[in-house]
Amino acid sequence: MDAVQQYLWSNAVGDLVPWPAQAEAVRQFGLTYDQVESLILEKGLLPARYQRNRTTVSIDEQLQLFKSRVAVIGCGGLGGYIIEELARLGVGQIVAIDPDIFEEHNLNRQLLASPASLGKAKVDAAAARVAEINPAVTLEAVKEAFTTANGKQLLQRVTVAVDALDSIGFRLELADVCTEMEIPMVYGAIGGWYGHVATQLPGDTTVQRTYRNWVEGKGIEKQLGNPAFTPAVVASLQVAEVCKILLGKGELLRHRKLSIDLLEMEIFEVSYEAPAELVRAA
């Protein structure tokens, strides 16, 4: 490893290691891109691709992101954008879970969908996209539906679970598995011009309370479908929450949920304070 480190040091510009040097290190020393990124960050250097992160995410924090493992459950409208942003942010391991293949009606909004991908597995498109935009990120593709039956195995060693599901029933199963495994969950749901986003830490029941009146079926998305912009907005808010959870900074959307209306351009905050806290506040 000394020779590799020597190579990376000598090719750094300031504390930035340019992409061609990383690619050459991979070739010359028979390493993988994630091994090279790990060596760079452990040395206190920064892969140059992250240079515009650095006032937002320090080198130490970039290493923290690189060591993180995030599960994205659903690779459709929300999931496509979430995976794209996590990979560009530099989250080292992504577990992408979705049983579906692309269909034509996905093309209006799903980032990973293209005419060429019709009929192909969404998780395979996710793996190909991540390999293309950030080869240092490892994406584990799971072509299965997430349920309480397989959930505990799928979320092994996961730091955060991101909800990009299109089914309320499966979403509640995800919330139950996250509660049981004490994994933070970033909830997102969309329909037409409207979206919800919230963060649930272990012990919270925001998602369960959001759907307390639900019996079966879909929400307004059944009639409204989803346009291009709503998943992008909600997914980006979710990734900002993931980033803060992984780095332990900022103020989370905890005990509150944003209800977003892009038609009226209104954001309403719904409180999910614990009952005891409400009493104290009163």
Binding site: I168, I190, Y194, Y211
Partner: peptide, 8 residues
């Protein structure tokens, strides 16, 4: 009153 939203 808020409608049910569940899509992804």
């Amino acid at each position: 009153l808020f409608p049910l939203v569940g899509g992804g």
